[in-house]
Write a protein that binds this DNA or RNA. Structure first.
Lengths: 113, 113
DNA sequence: AATAGTGCATCAGTGCCATAATACAGCGCG
DNA sequence: CGCGCTGTATTATGGCACTGATGCACTATT
């Protein structure tokens, strides 16, 4: 679902958020430059910048102009907590309702790791 | 998630599909007319027509020109089966991965009815 | 100073979505 | 027939989000 018709900058945003939460981008470390990530992902630098901007506004990354962007202290925790609440409050109720409608029992989903 | 920035015609499509699966629009029964549903939902008749069209192409509703549209026989089953497969194959893996990342255990969500 | 790397702002182009205003075509009923 | 209800086709238009190209401002390094 997330890899289909979703805007590129949102896919990038989720990708970056996941990397921060998972610790692949560690706190205090430098993030990939706009141009570098753009080249790596085959996207436009501006699109990548737009993805980064969301984190700047929330203070989750600190910008040093002419240098680069760094993961702020505590960003991983804040991000995980925020997404957690968002998931439980906004997304899960609809998912649950949908499963109920489609007759999908929770048991059959728990099997694999 | 489904009620946010999604195009109107897709929201209507999902709404109608849910109604058919739940049996609120029963097989053989007449669907709300394009104009009626448009007025009820505060949407444009053309947008409603666009939503209905998806079902016509799949033969899930039968059109009697000048009369109205009827839910085809077996539409509910086909629809539920199709959405079921789509959910299990496309959506659930990503949901599961996300839950894992956020540290949400499936068990705590399945409890209530 | 020169250079190359950062992020950022501005402007423009493109495509999808939604709407509007009509007009047309088929059916049922009085 | 005449009226009113169906769905459908056409064309045009405005809005909005996404994407993109270019150039500028800033910093570190040499």
């Amino acid at each position: 679902m997330s890899n289909q018709s979703k805007p590129v900058y949102l896919k990038l945003r989720d990708m970056i958020a996941a990397a921060i939460i998972d610790g692949r981008y560690r706190e205090g470390e430098m993030l990939p430059s706009v141009r570098a990530l753009a080249a790596e992902q085959g996207a436009n630098p501006l699109t990548v910048a737009k993805a980064y901007q969301q984190f700047q506004n929330d203070g989750l990354v600190e910008v040093q102009r002419g240098v680069g962007m760094y993961v702020a202290k505590g960003a991983a925790g804040v991000l995980r907590q925020r997404e957690r609440e968002e998931f439980l409050k906004e997304e899960w109720p609809e998912i649950r309702e949908r499963m109920q409608r489609l007759g999908i029992s929770p048991a059959e989903l728990m099997s694999d790791a």
